[in-house]
Design a protein around this nucleic acid. Structure first.
Lengths: 330, 330
DNA sequence: GTGAAAGCGCTAACAC
DNA sequence: GTGTTAGCGCTTTCAC
């Protein structure tokens, strides 16, 4: 590994000059600059980021903390963030918190130890104090998807309540009269908001709201929906809070020997390409995942650039994608 | 940020002793050890990994380079790798190469600059020389999913040819007589192997092999399959090389107004939970993605531990998941 | 415009 | 067992 010292020696200048040249600092004669660059290239010099980071107390690394990268919502976001990071010469640490505050705290500590330049995180349902370490260290931070009560920072959020409201109204227009909703519990912030939007629409139409929160897993939704369908007056429409719940609900409907949408309509959150091919095609709210990721990354870069800028909150709107599953009208 | 110096001062010992205690080195009295630990905790001391890394010329960071994290195959692998890393106190850098050798080379350079402890990568279809930098730097490396001709290193691979052979035989048993295959081009190593397995089975049954390589995107598969279906003697079965191709093929079949499996059977590679819900349920080869990730990570750890151990090649077998899409027999 | 030198926080000889 | 000290490779005063 060739170091600055090697380049300096070979170029007959001091390491200070080499450093100035390589980090594009002023006060170097163009002639010297070119010469140093040439030698550096010839020697195959690669800067040691670690040394640089130790000295400058910052790095080109940002952390991304999500509950589970396998959730397609986060997969897309991760990809977007990595794209922006790559464009800006940053690296991304991938961290899966599994909604576990302790695991989350551990990752936060690690990011601090690693001198990370910033962190984007989708917070677990933890107390705001879980993020004190970041705040105290003044590490740039952008929260995505969920708001933490009492924590003022940069946020990129979705308009969950409005989207759920729209989705509910849509399925009512499709002919639904008894609509039940399964929302994810762990992501309580989004779950709450979506449930609120659903409730508001139901009230508006004088319909009885039947909403439950479950662990966001296929099996939970399947059990819940199966129980509903076994009822005397089963719902004729199901609303779901994310893809896994949607899948579970579909399974319950199929197991009950019912068809979508003739017997039971269904619609949910999160768009994934294959929803168009499930049954008659499933209606969903498509969240702008890539945009959420991009925006969060850009917001983080801006905060790193200028740590004192006022905090911002960006709210992005999802889009209703209408397919066959949500209407019984001809 | 409190440093070792601070702890040393507060504990009335030298930094060397603090270092010994905190990195669990021998030659410290238990009494002193406890004392230092207490002080460190009281002061909220957190080690500076950067400084440690500069000194030891290694780090607790590993790189993961895949073409695109959004490919569910890689998403699962990434999650598995991150799990193992987390258990071992390592961090994971996420890198998307987009099958671009230059982007890949760039990430490799960055990992070197960051003093990464090792790298797991699914190589782009690049020349073996793209990995010279890693080999020269003696950075531990594990290749996954694809083999690079002329590069001896640690590998975790799938038995693609055997799996494709099995899949083809299965669909023949299901009643298929004219079977066409669309395989991914970019991932040429896996694509080639799968095509070879398909060809072998076709030959064995005296059937004509109709195989093409395309960019692994829905649209490409859709166009290809649509053309086949418009033929005089259209295939009555389609084999696909990955999920995106499967989705494209299904779209083409539906667009042509044909039904699965009555008119056209279909089966492909890669299992994702929703394939059970598409049409009558799609038959696939499920690759042990999580196991691939775990094994690769463990192999990397072993190599980091012992850089001179002989190179290994681990071949994992996929599993045929039979659903309704692959048989016309009653 | 350039160089000498200090030091970021840690580890690892080496002394005692 | 413990302390002293010399760096790891870089950036950044401060001289000149």
């Amino acid at each position: 590994m060739t170091s600055m010292k090697d380049v300096a020696k070979a170029a007959n200048v001091s390491v200070a000059t080499v450093s100035r040249v390589l980090s594009n600092k002023p006060n170097v004669r163009q002639e010297v600059r070119d010469h140093v660059m040439r030698i550096a290239r010839e020697l195959g010099y690669r800067p040691n980021q670690i040394a640089s980071s130790l000295r400058t107390r910052t790095s080109h690394v940002i952390g991304l903390v999500v509950s589970d990268i396998r959730n397609p919502f986060f997969t897309d976001i991760a990809r977007a963030i990595e794209d922006v990071a790559h464009e800006s010469g940053l690296q991304v640490f991938l961290c899966n918190s599994d909604e576990d505050p302790d695991k989350e705290a551990h990752y936060i500590a690690t990011l601090l130890e690693q001198n990370a330049a910033g962190v984007i995180l989708s917070p677990s349902p933890a107390a705001a104090s879980n993020f004190d370490a970041i705040v105290n260290a003044k590490m740039p931070m952008v929260m995505i998807d969920r708001r933490i009560k009492g924590l003022t920072t940069d946020y990129v959020l979705s308009d969950n309540a409005a989207m759920a409201y729209e989705l509910t109204k849509h399925i009512i227009a499709g002919g639904a009269t008894r609509i039940a909703a399964v929302m994810g519990l762990a992501a309580s912030f989004t779950g709450q908001e979506r449930m609120a939007g659903y409730r508001r629409a139901m009230e508006e139409f004088d319909l009885e709201a039947i909403g439950v929160f479950v662990e966001p897993e296929e099996g939970e939704a399947e059990r819940t929906v199966a129980a509903w369908l076994a009822d005397d007056m089963p719902p004729n429409a199901i609303l779901t809070g994310n893809v896994r719940l949607t899948l579970g609900a579909i399974r319950a409907i199929q197991q009950a020997g019912l068809t979508i949408p003739a017997d039971v309509m269904i619609a949910g959150f999160d768009e994934v390409p294959w929803l168009a091919f499930v049954g008659p095609g499933i209606t969903t709210i498509s969240q702008p995942t890539y945009e959420i990721g991009r925006s969060a990354a850009e917001m983080l870069l801006a905060r790193i650039e200028n740590p004192d800028r006022p905090h911002r909150e960006l709210i992005l709107h999802g889009q209703l994608i209408v397919r066959e599953s949500s209407s019984q009208r001809p």
